[in-house]
Amino acid sequence: MQWLDALVQGVLLGGMYAQYALGMALMFGVMRIVNIAHGDLMILLALTGISLATAFSLGTMSLIAVLVPLAALLGWTLQRGILNKAVGEDPLPSLIATFGLSIAVQNLMLQIWSADTRSLRGGGLESASIDVGGVYVGVLPVIVLVTAIALTAGLDFIVRATRFGRGLRAAAADTEAAAVTGVDPKSIYAVSTAIAVAILGIAAVFQSLRATVSPADGPAQLIYAFEAVIIGGMGSLWGAFVGSMVLGVAQAIGFRIDPGWGILFGHLVFLAALAIRPEGVMKRG
């Protein structure tokens, strides 16, 4: 029973990681842009969300409705203003630009919000749970998981089957060839990053309902997202979802063995996945 519980809690934790990882799967996996500021942007959105919710007494749904468009705008501006100048065959410029951005965002957040940890009140939602045959399942984590599944399915459909998705995959495969086929890679990328950061806006709300956030939390979230994308396989959105599940379950099992081992166990499983199947579990052809 203890292990079944660990499995269930791990899958639920994986749902949260899947929300971090989805934007990363789009930017890193598909567009091949290394965004070191990924976690920091999520924390920035979380702290902004907490401040907005406090200032205007917004409920969870209305906060999501406000924060997601704001996040999309942030992503669009980030791509137009910085990343479009740094993308190309060489991944190094985008890595360096976003590394700088990460440090700037962290310090900006410290300046505005101080180092205190904060969280969002969900009106009892955050502590509600249901008893499923002896395993207590939190209502919020289930909502997080269901949202993650819906977001992954939606984004996967967009990338695979729409005009925008084809343009994005074309631009990611060969930017110049896409341009001579009529695709404007920079505007496609701007929309794509807007989508990735908009998803982070949703993740930010759930993260601050589920746990606490403080300005220095970004890099850890970045690592989980990276690991999930790589375990799952570059370019596969469902792969990132599966990778998040693997990471969540590994951590939950680690925590059961010893409370100090949870995070480490996740990293160890990541290293094992890298050694055994470096192309990722969902890599095609």
């Binding site: 995959r169 060969d174 060839a177 896409a178 086929t181 695709v183």
Partner: peptide, 20 residues
């Protein structure tokens, strides 16, 4: 310079979607 990782038809559809 084809779009790697995409099918023949998807390569062609990019042109239909984004061309003149």
């Amino acid at each position: 310079r084809l779009f790697a990782g995409m099918s023949v038809e998807d390569n062609l559809r990019v042109a239909v979607d984004y061309g003149r």
